[in-house]
Each structure stands twice: as C-alpha cells, then as structure tokens.
Design a protein around this nucleic acid. Structure first.
Lengths: 153, 153
DNA sequence: TCAAATAACGTGCATATGCACGTACATGAA
DNA sequence: TTCATGTACGTGCATATGCACGTTATTTGA
C-alpha cells in the first residue's frame, strides 16, 4: 500500500496549474458550451435537460429527493425549475404531507425530452469519440470517484 | 486504428447517466464546495483565487488575455473582477491603447494570494490523495484533453 | 486624410449556484 | 391535547456564466 507520496509527486500536485477545482470548472464550462450548442434548437439548457432526464428515469420525485439525485443544492433546484414550469415542461403536485412538493414531468416535458434526445446523443458521441471510448470510460469513472470522495469527506 | 465503436460501446456512451456534461458539472459543484470550504477563512471564492493565481503567475494582463488564460468568457471575467476590485485585491490600469484595460494584482491582492496558498495546498493534496496520485494525474490529463478537444471542435 | 473595418470593452438579460435565515407543516412525547 | 422538535420548503444575498448588442478607440485601405 502507498503510505505517502514522493517529493516529486507532491511537487506536481501542488503546482497551481494543476488545481483540480479550476480545471474541473474549466472543463465544465467548455463542455457545457458544446452541449448547449447542440441542444440550442430545442430551447433547453444543459441543466434543464438533465432535470428532464432524471424525471424521465426516476418518475415523479419530491423536490428534495430530486435535488439529491442531481447532487444539487435544494434551493438551487427550486430556481432551476422555474423556467421549466414556465414553459409547462414540469409541474408541481401536492402530497398528503402538505410540505412536500412533488415534481412531475408533463406530457409536453416528456416530448421535449424525447425531441432533445437525439441531439444529446450526437454531441455525447462526438465527445466520447474525441477522447476515445476507452479513455472516456476511465474519465467518467474518475469523475464518479471524485464526486463520491468529495461528498464523503 | 479504431475506425468505429462497437455496439456495446455505443450503448454505454449513450446511457444518459453517463452524460459527460452532467457528470462534469456535478463534479465541479462538489469539488468547488470542498475548495471553498478550505478557502473560507480567507474570504476568497474558488474562482477569485484562480484569478489571483493566474495574475501572480503571468503578471499584469489585458482583460481579454486574462480571460483567454482562464478559458472564461470575457464578459464573465469583467463581472468576476468586481468583488476583487472592491476589496482592493486587483486594479485596472491604462495603456497607450485606450481600449485596453490591464488587470493588475495589488500588494494586498498578492498578500491575499499568499495567505490562501497553504489552504489551497491542503485541500488539493487531500483531493489528490483521495483518488491516489497516479489516478489523479491521469484524471487531470483527461480534463486537459477534454478542454482541448471541446475548444478545437 | 477619412471612411470602413476591426478590436477591446461594457451592459442587459437569462440562467446557475449555494449559504443563511425564516416559515409552514408534521410528529411524538408529556 | 399541546408543545417541542424535526422536516420540507422558499427567499434574500452574493457570485458565476455566457450570449446578443452597443460603444469607443485603433487600424487600414482607398
């Protein structure tokens, strides 16, 4: 097992150009622009598409549960939903427990999702091909590990 | 050389839970929270720290050049600088060419950067250790490749 | 020299992000 | 039943992000 890092490893890791946060944010910015360019004809932003995907997969969810599924702050989701509600892609239903706001995909939302799907698939395949499938696959694993690590600590 | 992907590869890549954009954004969110928690005593946000780092490394830069170095939209940078200017960490100087706004690190900004550095280093080393240095190193390469790919296309 | 093209900016608009704080509702124990 | 606690939310504030559009200053070509 590795107990400690070498001096050269430490030097690499603390080179400020190697800032994990800055590089992740940078990559998120440029990739978001690519996906939004692809989704532009659908009128959906990348974040909005992700919300629709999650609802299509999981079905109706209380706001807080949806936020957890998206690894997104609850209050951020509240605001992100506003344009989707305004466009009639999503509605909010009530529960027996009146505190709970259950988020539902409307028929219009389901259609918007299905219409956007081929555009998403196209850009996704381009990005995967850009890295090569094997490398991309490892990259995705690393993203998942990073998310899990950051959340647990 | 790989000319095409297998059907199974395509199936993996177009699984919507594998959305490169959504996963990148998710990772950027959680990692940003980690870095901002570490930087919290300094009063700097992650983005602001990155601006100071870049200025400390590159020296004074015209706004547009700084934005290019950060891979950030020029108009976004204009606004991101406002709190830094307000706190006196950064100033804007003039050029012969009066269109150019040259962004400079002040002495106070330089001190703020140096004060924040050990906190950044600590969280950076934690994150690197979380993935393991070797895996983290490959992850960073993948981020760089993703950025380069997305920008070129 | 002077008008057209270009370059470097800022602003309005819309969305994204999360923390601190406050509110309404539900639940369990006295 | 009632009240203390906990749960599900929303809002105010500050920052982050980028596109469309407009402004000012410089450069370039006739």
């Amino acid at each position: 097992m590795k107990q400690s890092e070498s001096k050269s490893e430490r030097r690499v890791a603390t080179n400020m150009a190697a800032c994990t946060c800055a590089n992740l944010r940078k990559a998120a910015r440029v990739i978001t622009q690519r996906y939004e360019a692809a989704l532009q004809p659908t009128g959906l932003k990348a974040t909005q598409f992700t919300v629709l995907v999650t609802l299509a997969k999981c079905g109706d969810l209380p706001l807080t549960h949806l936020a957890e599924a998206l690894v997104l702050d609850r209050t951020t989701l509240t605001r992100n939903l506003k344009p989707l509600i305004g466009q009639g892609l999503v509605t909010i239903g009530n529960e027996r427990d009146q505190r709970v706001r259950r988020i539902k995909l409307t028929a219009k939302g389901s259609k918007a999702f299905k219409d956007a799907l081929p555009r998403w698939e196209e850009v996704q395949l381009q990005v995967v091909a850009g890295l090569g499938h094997k490398r991309w696959s490892g990259f995705l694993d690393d993203l998942a590990a990073t998310i899990a690590e950051a959340r647990s600590t």
